[in-house]
Structures are given as structure tokens and as C-alpha cells.
Amino acid sequence: MELELKPFGVSGLYVKASGRMDLDNAVEFGTKVKETIEDSEGIDELIIDFGEITFISSFGLKVILELHKEMSTHGSMKLRNVPEAILKSFKMVGFDKFLVIE
């Protein structure tokens, strides 16, 4: 999986991941994003671009939930360009009720 992290605006972080978000790399993805948020203090807006994600497994979902919890304590998280199949997975586990999907 390839990961692109870049800040935007005053205190935003834009994350673009591509490939699979699965057993193999979901944890690594989550750790990297969390570390970036911790390293750059005061991030209160996180945008994750799902445009290039081809597959998400339960491990990926777990990480998304984790990030959502993390961000809701001091800001917000938005998902962008979520493909149909992945949206279906979100719905299956009820994530669509709280995730902000653009």
C-alpha cells in the first residue's frame, strides 16, 4: 500500500492511500497517520481519500474506527471518494451512521 500524507489549511491533514487496506498493512497505515497527527500538534481536521483503495478488510475498518475515535476528541474526520464496494462494507458494520463521507 502506498501512502501520501500532506498538511492543508491551518491545521488539516490530508491522507491519500492506495491499494489494499488489509491484514498486511492496515495496522501500519493507522500507526503512520496517528504518528503524523501526534508529531504535528493541533491537527483538528483529517481527510482520508479512498479514491485509490481497492479493498478494505475488517482490519482496515478497525483502523478507520480507531482514527475516528481519536479525531472526535479534538476535531473531525472526513472520508473522500469512497468506492461503492467499500461503502457497502461501511454500511454492513454500521459505520455509515457516524462517518462523514463526502
Binding site: S57, S58, F59, L61, K62, L65, E66, H68, K69, S72, S89, M92, V93, F98
Partner: peptide
Amino acid sequence: PPEERPLGGLGIFM
């Protein structure tokens, strides 16, 4: 609500 949801158990559920 999300803040009360545990992290595990999603996979086998799916």
C-alpha cells in the same frame, strides 16, 4: 455510537 463501540469483533461479524 462510535465512542462506545469496541474495536474488535468486526471481521467474523462481516
